[in-house]
Protein backbone atom coordinates (compact mmCIF):
# COMPACT_ATOMS: atom_id res chain seq x y z
CA UNK A 1 0.00 0.00 0.00
CA UNK A 2 1.39 3.37 -0.98
CA UNK A 3 0.87 6.75 0.66
CA UNK A 4 -1.60 7.99 -2.00
CA UNK A 5 -3.82 4.96 -1.56
CA UNK A 6 -3.77 5.24 2.23
CA UNK A 7 -4.41 9.00 2.08
CA UNK A 8 -7.25 8.38 -0.40
CA UNK A 9 -8.90 5.83 1.87
CA UNK A 10 -8.49 8.05 4.92
CA UNK A 11 -10.01 11.01 3.09
CA UNK A 12 -12.88 8.78 1.95
CA UNK A 13 -13.40 7.67 5.56
CA UNK A 14 -13.22 11.28 6.71
CA UNK A 15 -15.94 12.21 4.21
CA UNK A 16 -18.28 9.76 5.98
CA UNK A 17 -17.33 11.22 9.37
CA UNK A 18 -18.03 14.75 8.13
CA UNK A 19 -21.39 13.71 6.68
CA UNK A 20 -22.53 11.88 9.83
CA UNK A 21 -21.27 14.82 11.91
CA UNK A 22 -23.21 17.29 9.79
CA UNK A 23 -26.42 15.28 10.01
CA UNK A 24 -26.09 14.58 13.73
CA UNK A 25 -24.85 17.99 14.87
CA UNK A 26 -27.45 19.95 12.95
CA UNK A 27 -30.13 17.24 13.17
CA UNK A 28 -30.67 18.00 9.51
CA UNK A 29 -29.79 16.44 6.18
CA UNK A 30 -30.58 19.59 4.26
CA UNK A 31 -28.53 19.80 1.07
CA UNK A 32 -27.65 16.09 1.12
CA UNK A 33 -28.94 13.99 -1.76
CA UNK A 34 -30.59 10.78 -0.56
CA UNK A 35 -30.32 9.52 -4.14
CA UNK A 36 -26.53 9.81 -4.11
CA UNK A 37 -26.42 8.11 -0.70
CA UNK A 38 -28.61 5.26 -1.96
CA UNK A 39 -26.47 4.88 -5.08
CA UNK A 40 -23.29 4.74 -2.98
CA UNK A 41 -24.85 2.07 -0.79
CA UNK A 42 -25.71 0.09 -3.92
CA UNK A 43 -22.12 0.59 -5.12
CA UNK A 44 -20.68 -0.84 -1.91
CA UNK A 45 -23.12 -3.76 -1.77
CA UNK A 46 -22.30 -4.72 -5.37
CA UNK A 47 -18.56 -4.23 -5.00
CA UNK A 48 -18.09 -6.05 -1.72
CA UNK A 49 -20.01 -9.21 -2.59
CA UNK A 50 -16.78 -11.10 -1.96
CA UNK A 51 -16.44 -9.65 1.53
CA UNK A 52 -16.51 -13.04 3.22
CA UNK A 53 -15.21 -15.21 0.39
CA UNK A 54 -12.10 -13.32 -0.70
CA UNK A 55 -9.82 -12.27 2.14
CA UNK A 56 -7.17 -9.72 1.15
CA UNK A 57 -6.17 -8.16 4.47
CA UNK A 58 -7.61 -7.15 7.83
CA UNK A 59 -7.38 -3.53 6.67
CA UNK A 60 -9.38 -4.29 3.54
CA UNK A 61 -12.11 -6.25 5.31
CA UNK A 62 -12.42 -3.68 8.12
CA UNK A 63 -12.71 -0.74 5.72
CA UNK A 64 -15.34 -2.54 3.64
CA UNK A 65 -17.44 -3.25 6.71
CA UNK A 66 -17.07 0.37 7.89
CA UNK A 67 -18.08 1.73 4.46
CA UNK A 68 -21.09 -0.58 4.25
CA UNK A 69 -22.14 0.07 7.85
CA UNK A 70 -21.80 3.83 7.56
CA UNK A 71 -23.71 3.93 4.28
CA UNK A 72 -26.64 2.05 5.77
CA UNK A 73 -26.49 4.21 8.91
CA UNK A 74 -26.74 7.36 6.75
CA UNK A 75 -29.71 5.89 4.87
CA UNK A 76 -31.36 5.15 8.20
CA UNK A 77 -30.80 8.72 9.43
CA UNK A 78 -32.18 10.25 6.22
CA UNK A 79 -35.14 7.91 5.78
CA UNK A 80 -35.96 6.58 9.23
CA UNK A 81 -34.97 9.13 11.86
CA UNK A 82 -38.12 11.04 12.71
CA UNK A 83 -36.48 14.45 13.28
CA UNK A 84 -33.92 14.26 10.47
CA UNK A 85 -36.06 12.77 7.71
CA UNK A 86 -38.35 15.81 7.58
CA UNK A 87 -35.35 18.03 6.71
CA UNK A 88 -34.65 16.07 3.51
CA UNK A 89 -35.03 18.20 0.35
CA UNK A 90 -37.31 15.74 -1.38
CA UNK A 91 -38.66 18.24 -3.91
CA UNK A 92 -35.18 19.39 -4.96
CA UNK A 93 -33.54 15.96 -5.10
CA UNK A 94 -35.19 14.95 -8.35
CA UNK A 95 -32.45 13.19 -10.29
CA UNK A 96 -33.72 9.91 -11.79
CA UNK A 97 -31.94 6.77 -10.61
CA UNK A 98 -32.64 5.03 -13.90
CA UNK A 99 -30.62 7.57 -15.90
CA UNK A 100 -27.56 6.40 -13.98
CA UNK A 101 -28.29 2.78 -13.06
CA UNK A 102 -29.47 1.62 -16.48
CA UNK A 103 -26.54 2.88 -18.59
CA UNK A 104 -24.07 1.56 -15.98
CA UNK A 105 -25.76 -1.85 -15.98
CA UNK A 106 -25.73 -2.00 -19.79
CA UNK A 107 -22.10 -0.90 -19.92
CA UNK A 108 -21.14 -3.53 -17.33
CA UNK A 109 -22.86 -6.20 -19.45
CA UNK A 110 -20.92 -5.04 -22.51
CA UNK A 111 -17.51 -4.09 -21.08
CA UNK A 112 -16.01 -6.21 -18.30
CA UNK A 113 -12.95 -8.30 -17.64
CA UNK A 114 -14.70 -11.64 -17.29
CA UNK A 115 -18.18 -12.92 -18.03
CA UNK A 116 -19.07 -14.09 -14.54
CA UNK A 117 -21.92 -12.77 -12.36
CA UNK A 118 -19.48 -11.54 -9.73
CA UNK A 119 -17.26 -9.75 -12.22
CA UNK A 120 -20.18 -8.07 -14.04
CA UNK A 121 -21.74 -6.86 -10.77
CA UNK A 122 -18.33 -5.64 -9.58
CA UNK A 123 -17.81 -3.77 -12.87
CA UNK A 124 -21.30 -2.26 -12.55
CA UNK A 125 -20.27 -0.90 -9.14
CA UNK A 126 -17.18 0.72 -10.66
CA UNK A 127 -19.25 2.45 -13.36
CA UNK A 128 -21.98 3.47 -10.93
CA UNK A 129 -19.54 4.98 -8.43
CA UNK A 130 -18.18 7.22 -11.19
CA UNK A 131 -21.55 8.94 -11.68
CA UNK A 132 -23.24 8.48 -8.28
CA UNK A 133 -22.27 12.00 -7.18
CA UNK A 134 -24.38 13.63 -9.94
CA UNK A 135 -27.65 13.88 -7.92
CA UNK A 136 -25.64 15.47 -5.10
CA UNK A 137 -24.01 18.00 -7.43
CA UNK A 138 -27.37 18.90 -8.95
CA UNK A 139 -28.86 19.33 -5.47
CA UNK A 140 -25.93 21.52 -4.38
CA UNK A 141 -26.53 23.74 -7.36
CA UNK A 142 -30.15 24.17 -6.29
CA UNK A 143 -29.34 24.73 -2.61
CA UNK A 144 -29.03 28.29 -1.41
CA UNK A 145 -26.66 28.74 1.55
CA UNK A 146 -24.67 25.52 1.28
CA UNK A 147 -23.36 24.86 4.80
CA UNK A 148 -19.63 24.35 5.33
CA UNK A 149 -19.87 20.70 6.29
CA UNK A 150 -21.83 19.81 3.15
CA UNK A 151 -19.28 21.63 1.00
CA UNK A 152 -16.42 19.90 2.83
CA UNK A 153 -18.13 16.54 2.44
CA UNK A 154 -18.32 16.83 -1.35
CA UNK A 155 -14.78 18.21 -1.50
CA UNK A 156 -13.43 15.21 0.46
CA UNK A 157 -15.24 12.80 -1.86
CA UNK A 158 -13.59 14.44 -4.86
CA UNK A 159 -10.20 14.57 -3.16
CA UNK A 160 -10.40 10.85 -2.40
CA UNK A 161 -10.80 10.10 -6.10
CA UNK A 162 -7.95 12.43 -7.04
CA UNK A 163 -5.65 10.64 -4.58
CA UNK A 164 -6.64 7.29 -6.06
CA UNK A 165 -5.45 8.49 -9.48
CA UNK A 166 -2.03 9.27 -7.96
CA UNK A 167 -2.13 5.80 -6.37
CA UNK A 168 -2.77 4.20 -9.77
CA UNK A 169 0.10 6.13 -11.38
CA UNK A 170 2.39 5.05 -8.53
CA UNK A 171 1.29 1.43 -8.81
CA UNK A 172 1.66 1.41 -12.59
CA UNK A 173 5.33 2.31 -12.26
CA UNK A 174 6.11 0.16 -9.24
CA UNK A 175 4.09 -3.05 -9.77
CA UNK A 176 4.55 -5.36 -12.75
CA UNK A 177 1.41 -6.07 -14.81
CA UNK A 178 -0.66 -3.48 -13.02
CA UNK A 179 -3.12 -2.44 -15.73
CA UNK A 180 -6.74 -1.64 -14.81
CA UNK A 181 -8.41 0.12 -17.71
CA UNK A 182 -12.00 -0.11 -16.44
CA UNK A 183 -11.10 1.22 -13.00
CA UNK A 184 -8.80 3.94 -14.33
CA UNK A 185 -11.15 5.36 -16.95
CA UNK A 186 -14.11 5.29 -14.53
CA UNK A 187 -12.00 6.94 -11.84
CA UNK A 188 -10.85 9.68 -14.21
CA UNK A 189 -14.46 10.33 -15.30
CA UNK A 190 -15.48 10.46 -11.64
CA UNK A 191 -12.77 12.99 -10.83
CA UNK A 192 -13.61 15.17 -13.85
CA UNK A 193 -17.19 15.48 -12.57
CA UNK A 194 -15.81 17.28 -9.50
CA UNK A 195 -13.63 19.81 -11.36
CA UNK A 196 -16.34 22.45 -11.61
CA UNK A 197 -17.18 22.00 -7.91
CA UNK A 198 -13.48 22.21 -6.96
CA UNK A 199 -13.18 25.49 -8.83
CA UNK A 200 -15.97 27.15 -6.86
CA UNK A 201 -14.99 25.48 -3.59
CA UNK A 202 -11.41 26.73 -3.76
CA UNK A 203 -12.54 30.16 -4.96
CA UNK A 204 -14.93 30.56 -2.01
CA UNK A 205 -12.22 29.33 0.36
CA UNK A 206 -9.63 31.78 -1.00
CA UNK A 207 -12.01 34.71 -0.91
CA UNK A 208 -13.36 33.61 2.44
CA UNK A 209 -16.96 33.73 1.27
CA UNK A 210 -19.74 31.19 1.53
CA UNK A 211 -19.78 28.49 -1.13
CA UNK A 212 -22.42 28.97 -3.80
CA UNK A 213 -22.61 27.18 -7.13
CA UNK A 214 -23.95 29.12 -10.12
CA UNK A 215 -27.12 27.50 -11.43
Amino acid sequence: MNIFRLAGDMVHLLSFVVLVLKINATKSCRGISLKTQELYTLVFVCRYLDLFSNFISMYNTTMKIVFLGTSFAILYLMRGHKVIKVTYDREQDTFRYLFLVLPCALLALLIHNAWTPFEVVWTFSIYLEAVAILPQLVLLQRTQNIDNLTGNYVFLLGLYRGLYILNWIYRYFTEPHYIQWIVWISGIVQTILYLDFFYYYIKSWKNNVKLALPS
Binding site: N60, F67, Y178
Partner: peptide, 10 residues
Amino acid sequence: DDESNDKDEL
Protein backbone atom coordinates in the same frame (compact mmCIF):
# COMPACT_ATOMS: atom_id res chain seq x y z
CA ASP B 1 -1.33 -13.63 -8.27
CA ASP B 2 -2.66 -10.88 -10.52
CA GLU B 3 -6.23 -12.11 -10.42
CA SER B 4 -6.64 -11.61 -6.68
CA ASN B 5 -4.49 -8.49 -6.57
CA ASP B 6 -6.81 -6.57 -8.84
CA LYS B 7 -9.57 -6.37 -6.20
CA ASP B 8 -7.43 -5.08 -3.36
CA GLU B 9 -8.72 -1.53 -3.67
CA LEU B 10 -11.83 -0.17 -2.02
